[in-house]
Simulated scan of single mutants.
Amino acid sequence: MHIARRFIGLVLILFFGLPTLFGIIWAVGMIKASVSAEFLTDLPRKIIADIPETADEIFREAQDEEYIGDSDTRTWFQAAAKTGISPRELMQKTGLLEWMEGELSDSLKQLGRVLRGERRPRQIVIDLRPLKDALLHPEVEMFLEKTLANLPPCDERGLKEWAEFAASAGRHHELPACQPELASAKLALNEARTRVVNEMDNEFEILEDFHGFTFLPLGLSRTITLLSYFLFLIPAAFIFLGALIAASSPAGFCRWSGTSILFGGVPALLLSLFVKYLSLWAIQAAPFSSWHDRWASDLGDLVLNKVRWIPERIADQLFSPVVWVALFVCLVGVVFIAVSFSVRDKASKPRNPATATSTPVAPPKTEVK
């Protein structure tokens, strides 16, 4: 009978408790990462603040053969540099930089305050019309016109490629690094810009309006994270039920529970650490991989090198919460195992019954006279 109980308890733990515990660890960790204000608002604002400086660095280095081996790509950047306008200056003239540092950054800041519980949830919408106006700004058209004027003349092949680009309205065709007939080239580029802008929405809603939504003092992010921890009740039910069936004493219950929790937490911890550091290694090693040359370009490598901290930060923000949740689960398992030894010691401690010892009383001696 005792063997049958252990078998049933082992089945519940092994086939139901451990798989659900493993999955819940990852689910809670990813939920915690995906709703954090640091991931959703602080990181994008940092990226926005670094865009102008990063764009200028890429613009300068893309003209150098040390970084860009493709001559056509270098020619385009060198022609753009001869205009005397840097990416930051172009952003300022078109109003794009003001929109990024103003409305876009403020909207993300408001979202962060909602997630942290500093304000009530309300609708937050990013107006994309300033972005569309910036892309169609006359300064952009003037910049493109000056860049085209600085390109070398086209040969027959270059003219054919420009004609194909114009016929496709800029779809699926790379621009040749040569100067065609300026009027037709300007028309083709303007049509491509207009098509891209028309496909964009006028606004982007990042948070819906919550009518009647109760204010959460802990913040939306912390509340969702806290509620996600209740998911652990699912594997806990299977593990504790299996331990209750298999164990024959309180010490055995704690030992079965702690060992099961530890066996469920350790694989999740090891896998989360492996995936995290594998992702960071892959980001670092991407330019040196064997498949890299099949699809990547020198310009892509240059951009990746300048913004490498972004995917690294994203990988860290995504997988670190999973690591901490798995570590916490492992500690819970260790605590249960430690408690099992304490319970066993108390249960096995012998009781010392009070034994009454009676000393026989010697009969009174009679004095012989």
Rank of each mutant, 00 (worst) to 15 (best):
G300W: 02
I283P: 00
Y277A: 03
Y277R: 08
Q284L: 08
D293T: 14
A282H: 08
W309L: 04
A282V: 12
I310A: 02
S289V: 03
R294E: 15
V275S: 02
L304P: 00
Q284D: 14
S290Q: 07
K276N: 11
N305R: 11
Q284S: 12
R308P: 01
S279M: 12
D293R: 14
A286D: 04
A296E: 07
V307Q: 01
A282E: 08
R308G: 01
S289T: 14
N305K: 07
G300L: 01
S289H: 03
F288E: 13
W309P: 09
G300T: 00
L302S: 10
Y277V: 05
P311G: 04
V307W: 03
P287D: 06
L278H: 13
P311C: 05
K306M: 06
K276L: 15
L280Y: 03
D293S: 15
S290W: 05
A286M: 13
A286P: 00
W295Y: 15
D293M: 09
L280H: 02
D293Q: 14
W309R: 13
A286Y: 04
K276M: 13
A285K: 03
L299D: 09
S279P: 01
A282G: 10
W291F: 12
N305H: 09
K306L: 03
R294Y: 15
P287H: 05
S290C: 00
R294I: 13
L280A: 07
D301N: 14
A282T: 12
Y277M: 07
L299Q: 10
I310N: 06
D301K: 11
W291L: 11
D298R: 02
D301E: 12
W309V: 11
S290F: 05
S279R: 05
L304I: 01
K276Y: 12
K306W: 02
V307I: 13
S289G: 07
S279T: 11
L304M: 11
I283M: 07
N305S: 10
V303H: 02
L304V: 00
A285D: 10
S297L: 07
V303C: 01
V307P: 00
W281G: 09
D298E: 06
A296W: 11
V275Y: 05
H292T: 13
A286K: 10
S297E: 08
P287Q: 09
L278V: 03
A296I: 02
V275T: 12
S279C: 10
W295T: 05
A285F: 04
H292W: 12
W295E: 11
K276T: 09
